[in-house]
Amino acid sequence: MVKELQPMVTFFAGTYPYQVRINLWYRQDYLEFECVGGTHPHVGAVAYGDEHVELLYQFPDHKEGELLRSLIKKVQKASGSIVVGSCGIHVDNATWEEIQLLVHHAERCGEEMERFLFYKEKA
């Protein structure tokens, strides 16, 4: 049975082709988010986290795993909820500086999401 979705919240940072966005869904008993960006948004890594367990799978030839791990920890700590996430950011032939910019944008989105969840939990 498909559970009813609660309203979705989206966080953005940067401009195309370096824009990153995080879409956050409230499921019935957990939070789900996707962090995507660049010119080819996709799923490069998936993760699960709660207060006791963290599971992460990074697909072959992808590098989003550590970024996703950081985001999962932030969301879980801010919300106290079970969290499921995915991440996929890609720009063809990106330089080191462009990769750092994309990571920075993802981290900014993560910080906004963390603040949002922290204050939502306090309300």
Score class of each variant (00 low, 15 high):
G88E: 07
V83E: 09
P41D: 05
R69C: 09
Q58L: 12
G49Q: 15
R27C: 03
Q28P: 00
G49F: 04
G85N: 03
G65D: 04
A47V: 02
G88R: 07
C109G: 03
L101I: 02
C109D: 01
P60G: 13
I22C: 09
E107Y: 08
Q19C: 07
N23G: 11
T39N: 10
G37F: 07
E51G: 10
Y57G: 04
S81Y: 12
E32K: 04
G65R: 01
G14Y: 03
D50P: 01
V84C: 02
G80E: 06
C35N: 05
Y30F: 09
E111Y: 06
G37E: 04
H104I: 04
S86N: 06
T95R: 05
L67Q: 02
L102A: 09
L56F: 12
H52Q: 13
L67W: 08
G37S: 07
G110S: 09
Q76I: 05
G14I: 10
G49K: 15
R21G: 07
K77V: 14
I72W: 13
L71R: 04
Q58W: 04
Y26D: 10
E51C: 11
H42M: 08
T39D: 08
R27P: 00
P17I: 07
L68D: 04
V91I: 15
L24V: 03
E32Q: 08
V46N: 00
F33N: 12
V43K: 05
E66K: 05
N93G: 04
G80W: 01
G110D: 02
V83C: 06
G44H: 04
I82N: 08
P17Y: 03
Y30C: 03
R108E: 09
I99D: 02
H90A: 15
L31C: 05
V83M: 07
Y30R: 12
G80V: 05
G88I: 05
V75E: 14
Q58T: 11
G110R: 02
R21Y: 08
C109L: 14
R69Y: 12
G65H: 02
S70E: 15
E107C: 15
C109P: 00
Y48Q: 07
N93H: 12
R27H: 06
G88W: 07
V84N: 08
K74F: 15
L55Y: 06
A106K: 00
Y57M: 11
H104E: 11
L67E: 02
T95E: 03
A78N: 03
S81D: 14
E64T: 03
L102I: 06
E34F: 12
N23L: 14
L71C: 15
E64M: 09
K73M: 11
V84D: 01
H105I: 12
L55K: 05
H52V: 10
T15G: 10
L101C: 05
E98H: 08
P60Q: 02
